[in-house]
């Protein structure tokens, strides 16, 4: 039983987009620079051959790549474009066919589970359960901020999980649900753009109370501060959909969890902590329940660090190194 470190290659999207790392380069970086073994892939972002039907030769190339770097496929991200045609939504049957494409591809590439987007309806997952079993690939619905476990949407999904009672139907918590304040870099950039410290402080203090408190804060600040400037409005809007979950939800739903997304934006190199997301308590719970599987780093802070020309994407690699240093410390490696 062990918690294993992995990376979602989503984290390296700017490096890939700008031709600095190709798919092999991303895997090499994860293995050699981070010492991590799990590879999470968005097959529609960095396709192995072509999506969704790579040739046997492409699949062999991928398997050789995993063997070469001592890595293993952990999770593949599925999208299900239910708005594939303009003016109509795919029927349930069509959406299940889309799911089958991803389950089949994941199986061919050796992934143990797929990440199902939060807005995919419970009916689609339920109707895909026997297909997932056939391909031996688990489906995990991503619990992504601002969704919380208590929301009616999630409750319907959880009722379905209980009814279907299949190991192929589960959950993937995203650490964004443990975000308790805006990241430090977000605060610093708002201040540099002209936001007043009183406004930034008020948002930081209110964030953890959730979106209702954040919605009430804006008119209150507008009144108290005699209006808000564009930097302040931008900072408030960006942080308006907050929804902090108690890390104990991991214990409550442990039997349904198939994978974790380690969402992060900024790691403080001095303290090795995420500057807005609680990692310590969720990791303690993961260890207590004996979680046996991967957590993928999912760096999503690109927008804070990008330069206009895009030639330097070292921020992705630097932040990943810090994130893995932090996770290794939390895991007592």
């Amino acid at each position: 039983m062990a918690i294993k470190r992995g990376v979602s290659l989503y984290s390296l999207q700017d490096s890939y987009y700008n031709g600095i790392l190709d798919l092999e380069g991303c895997v090499k970086f994860v293995a050699e620079e981070l010492g991590a073994t799990g590879i999470e892939l968005l097959a529609e972002q960095m396709p192995v051959g072509s999506y969704p039907d790579p040739s046997e030769k492409d699949v062999d190339w991928w398997k050789d790549l995993m063997a070469k770097y001592g890595t293993e496929p952990s999770c593949m991200d599925s999208f299900i474009d239910w708005m594939l045609y303009k003016g109509r939504i795919l029927t349930l049957k069509e959406q299940v066919q889309e799911m089958e494409k991803d389950l089949k591809l994941a199986s061919r590439l050796g992934f143990k589970c797929i990440r199902v987007l939060t807005p995919v309806r419970a009916e689609v997952v339920e109707a895909s359960a026997s297909i997932a079993e056939y391909y031996n690939v688990k489906m995990g619905l991503e619990i992504h901020a601002p969704m919380s476990f208590d929301a009616p949407w999630m409750q319907r999904y959880l009722e379905m999980c209980a009814r279907v009672d299949s190991p192929y139907v589960g959950l993937i918590p995203d650490f964004g649900i443990f975000q308790y304040q805006p990241n430090r870099i977000n605060q610093q950039q708002a201040l540099a753009a002209g936001a007043r410290p009183e406004v930034v402080d008020a948002v930081v203090k209110t964030y953890k109370s959730g979106y209702a408190a954040m919605a009430a804060l804006r008119p209150q600040l507008e009144k108290e501060m005699g209006g808000l400037n564009p930097a302040e409005m931008g900072f408030i809007m960006r942080n308006s959909r907050s929804a902090y979950s108690d890390p104990d939800v991991i214990r409550k739903y442990k039997d349904l969890i198939v994978h974790f997304h380690g969402k992060f934006y900024e790691i403080d190199p001095e303290t090795l902590t995420e500057t807005g997301i609680n990692y310590e308590e969720p990791f303690a719970v993961m260890k207590e329940i004996g979680y046996d599987g991967f957590i993928s780093s999912e760096f999503e802070g690109q927008g804070f660090y990008q330069t206009p020309d895009g030639n330097d994407t070292s921020y992705e690699m630097n932040e990943l190194k810090l994130h893995h240093k932090m996770m290794a410390k939390l895991l007592g490696e």
Binding site: L42, E44, Q45, Y51, D81, L84, Y85, K86
Partner: peptide
């Protein structure tokens, strides 16, 4: 966007 899409999705 951060992934590729079918051409029918180019609105």
């Amino acid at each position: 966007y951060y992934r590729g899409v079918a051409l029918s999705l180019v609105e």
